[in-house]
Computed example of a mutant assay.
Amino acid sequence: MQNNRYVRHSISALALAIAGQAGAFELNAGDYQAELYGYARFNASYDIDEDIGISTRAGAFSAINTGADEDNEATGYFSADAVQTRLGVRASSPEGVKVVLEGDFRPGTLRLRHGYGEYNGVLLGQTWSNFNSFVGNTKVLDFDGLAGNAGLQGRVAQARYTTGAFSVSAEEPITNFLEGAGATVGGKQGLPTLTARFEQAAGGLSYSAAALVQEVGYDTGTVDDSIVGYAAFAAAKMALGESLTIQGSVSYTDGANSYLYRSGENFGAEDAYIRGGDLESIAGYGGTVGVGLDLGAGSSINVGYGLVTVDWDDAEADGAAVADKSETNQNLMANYLWSPVKNVMMGVEYGFFKRENVNGDEGDANRILFAGQYTF
């Protein structure tokens, strides 16, 4: 009988929430609380001189033509989709247990973004990597954002403990290396990736710093090797008065380029390469800088620039097939955002993307992105 009463209370609460306040549909049954949240999102892109749009109409470094191929690029390409649309549920129990379940439709089918529980600072499940921060990120419409944003900028399965501003985690490893003729192979997952992060705010300053260690290994049954990779970042945002902010981040990796955001063909580059049966680490670095200006009346202007570079010199000297690998990725985004009414966002953004390969070939692309978002 208790369960039946709980279901009836939940259904009644849902009906009331739908007729209630905007921002989220609340469900309350006794001391249990839950809310349904999300948004509908429309993205449209116009690629001026080369088609580099992927799902959510984000720009992809992997789609940029380089060298002689840059002369054969498509021009004036338009496309649109709504796969960024998102739906989630947050719930909490009287004992303080919190549960989040969230999904979206990228690249065109429902996928899990977040699925975790949390109690007394202990989090288990899938959510943003602990080696991640949004503190230094500039507001952009491009879903994949600036090269060099701090940390993974993605979600992984993990066990995390947080106390105050400090958090540590053991996470699902993300490793890969070069094998043979430049083929990328997933690394052996012998140990979890370990991370630590500190994030705090004081007055108009917000800041974050994190470090990571991981094992990169392989084992064919007859030959095996492993190395230790590590990464670190620092990010900060400063409010200069009531309307202007400046923000940015710096990152360094060695044997952990999977966590150097947008450093590879589009996301993380390889962590290592094989030389005579031994793994050799590959290093990289990156950073971002941006400004945001609040114009009032729900509108703002934001400009951000990001760059990442991977050091392929040793791999190239040892004969690895890296000539066509992306050595430096950089992009710039400038947008105007406005909110005509509560829970509605519109925006238009100019994006410039540039890629330079190890062999010196390079290419760039210019694009315009438009977005409309309705949040509940």
Rank of each mutant, 00 (worst) to 15 (best):
G203Q: 12
V289T: 10
F25C: 04
I368H: 11
R41D: 13
Y218R: 11
R275E: 12
R355H: 07
E172P: 00
E349D: 10
F233N: 05
I227N: 05
D81W: 01
M1R: 03
G319Q: 10
A80R: 05
T162F: 05
P340H: 06
M345V: 09
V100C: 02
F105Y: 14
V185D: 15
D49P: 06
A170G: 13
G241N: 04
G264C: 01
V303A: 13
S133E: 08
D219H: 09
V310I: 07
G284D: 09
G217P: 09
A15L: 14
A256Q: 03
D69L: 15
F370G: 15
V322H: 05
G117D: 07
S243A: 15
N72A: 14
S45H: 04
D104V: 15
N331Q: 11
G67M: 06
E26N: 12
E356Q: 13
I274N: 00
E199N: 10
R275F: 00
N3F: 11
G306S: 11
F198G: 08
Y285E: 13
L152H: 08
L369N: 12
L240E: 05
V223C: 00
R367D: 04
A58L: 06
K325W: 05
N357P: 00
S169G: 06
L87H: 03
L110T: 10
G351R: 04
S339M: 07
S339D: 04
P340D: 07
G255N: 07
F353Y: 15
A183C: 00
A202L: 12
V213S: 06
P340T: 08
H114W: 06
L27P: 00
L337D: 05
F61A: 14
L146I: 07
A183R: 12
L279P: 03
G203N: 14
Y273S: 10
V97R: 08
E50F: 06
I368F: 15
S93Y: 01
G360N: 11
G277P: 11
S167C: 04
P192L: 09
H114S: 09
H114Q: 14
G121E: 10
D254W: 09
V213W: 08
